[in-house]
Design a protein around this nucleic acid. Structure first.
Lengths: 269, 269
DNA sequence: TGCATCAGCTTGTACCAACAAGTTGAGCAA
DNA sequence: TTGCTCAACTTGTTGGTACAAGCTGATGCA
């Protein structure tokens, strides 16, 4: 019923590597050396199948490797495209600078200055504190917090999600935090005007592959990790907010300027 | 010659999702809710095949998804294991603190303080500057630089690779830079003792999937991104070094302390 | 006891076949 | 010209088979 084809034992040279890896490696080389520049299309599976004398499944395994490494992406009906990245730099140590004046919220300012067009959707709700945020805000897990959630785009490409939790006690001083809608001058500035000044922050940066939910919101395919940025802001007494931002790892880079950098071009001020 | 089996059209409820995704989602849920805790083994492909009434290929596709997301890993002959992470925190703003005294190099100090055992292999060579480093050191691409390369382990697990490039002109003041072997007091301290003081640095943090070379050195499987950390150190006049570190993303987190954090437990000093 | 072997499990590689579903452009009809 | 249909491409999903290769524990021989 099933006829096993005679398996030829090639063994030319040493190879050793399985065929699907050879396919992946060959294509990777050709992508690296510019045979297939960023944005260009790879030959179709059946063409590659002929070229490498491999079955379509084997070629697919090889292509799957490159996809999971973020080098290429595929779309049904179209083919495989070589990934192209245009990274956006976020200066985290200048972002929300405590002494520097700025108009509106820090995100719009930063993106506009880079000559790109920012847009965002916005949501405010009361939520029990997740364990991660509760620990950083020094409140009980499950206690009420104000969640202000942003889904941000740059030139209509999904860019990041940002969830800031504020402890409940802060509402007595800053009731507008819990009201829906933007706070025009920025929440940090708003709180400062009420005497709750953020005089320092603690940043944590991690990376991992996106959850299905994150992959949906950020519209990333397989092979693109996310950058996780947690900023806990402190007043002179205690933590006043915890912001968790998820970035598309292929489009973002974070910068920190520490110490005296007068030898650099632009002054860190 | 080939007999196509009657394809039953289930369509219970809505499903819509392909079967291999359903397998992946079901397993993900069971991993999340603790049915399969970190470190435990998943049922074998054939067991899952029976449970989900799917072919082994379909089950493998589902498992492959979870592998590429870093949730599980597989080894031939053994099966699939749920990934367990024990993250190591690296305080980047305290690391190589300019004013804080320390013994030996910053890495060993940091790891030892965390109660873990550091080890490393080390290499020094003269190398033409790659474009990336040349740009940051403000020298011509291809001009000579000193490369000091570290491959670091924590408790014998590959942890990070670190490549520091120094511009050639620095050799006149610090000839020991180009000599093989460690510099006991740390290179930053050594240079400072010669009057080349690093008074500030510029950090860049990015993430991506590892290259095959990086995957080999860090022994990461598919689905684990790397964290890329570039630190450019400045004297009062110009850049004096450029360090590129690659971390396993599943084992590391970076921290920055900015501003006044007296409200936190430990004093940032 | 100690050690080598092997059966029986596991995943890895490679192939075949069929059909579903998305995209595009050619070509025809209004 | 405009708009629709459809053929001919593309990748996506799912099934099947066979064998290679790694791991483990049981078995049996020396």
């Amino acid at each position: 019923m099933y006829q096993q084809v005679a398996r030829v034992r090639h063994d030319e040279g040493m190879s050793k590597q399985p065929k699907y890896r050879q396919v992946a490696d060959a294509l990777r080389r050709e992508i690296d050396n510019g045979t297939y520049p960023p944005g260009s299309r790879l030959p179709s599976e059946s063409e590659l199948s002929a070229r490498f004398d491999a079955s379509r499944n084997t070629v697919r395994s090889g292509l799957g490797l490159l996809v999971s490494q973020g080098l290429i992406s595929s779309s049904q009906g179209l083919g495989y495209e070589v990934a192209k990245h245009e990274v956006f730099e976020l200066n985290a140590s200048r972002f929300e600078n405590l002494t520097f004046p700025q108009n509106g919220d820090a995100y719009s300012t930063d993106v506009t200055n880079a000559g790109r067009r920012p847009s965002q959707t916005f949501r405010v709700e009361l939520q029990p504190a997740p364990a991660y945020q509760a620990e950083r805000l020094r409140v009980d897990a499950g206690s009420t917090t104000v969640l202000r959630f942003c889904h941000r785009f740059v030139d209509d490409v999904p860019w990041s999600t940002q969830a800031t939790h504020y402890p409940e006690w802060l509402l007595q001083q800053g009731p507008r935090l819990a009201e829906p809608g933007d706070i025009a001058e920025g929440t940090t500035r708003y709180l400062a005007s009420l005497g709750v000044e953020q005089i320092g922050y603690f940043d944590e940066i991690a990376t991992r592959m996106p959850t299905p939910e994150e992959a949906r919101l950020l519209e990333v395919g397989a092979g693109v990790p996310v950058l996780l940025w947690t900023r806990t802001g402190y007043s002179k007494d205690r933590p006043i907010r915890c912001t968790v931002t998820t970035f598309r790892g292929d489009l973002n880079r974070m910068n920190y300027e520490i110490g005296n950098l007068s030898a650099r071009g632009e002054e860190p001020q």
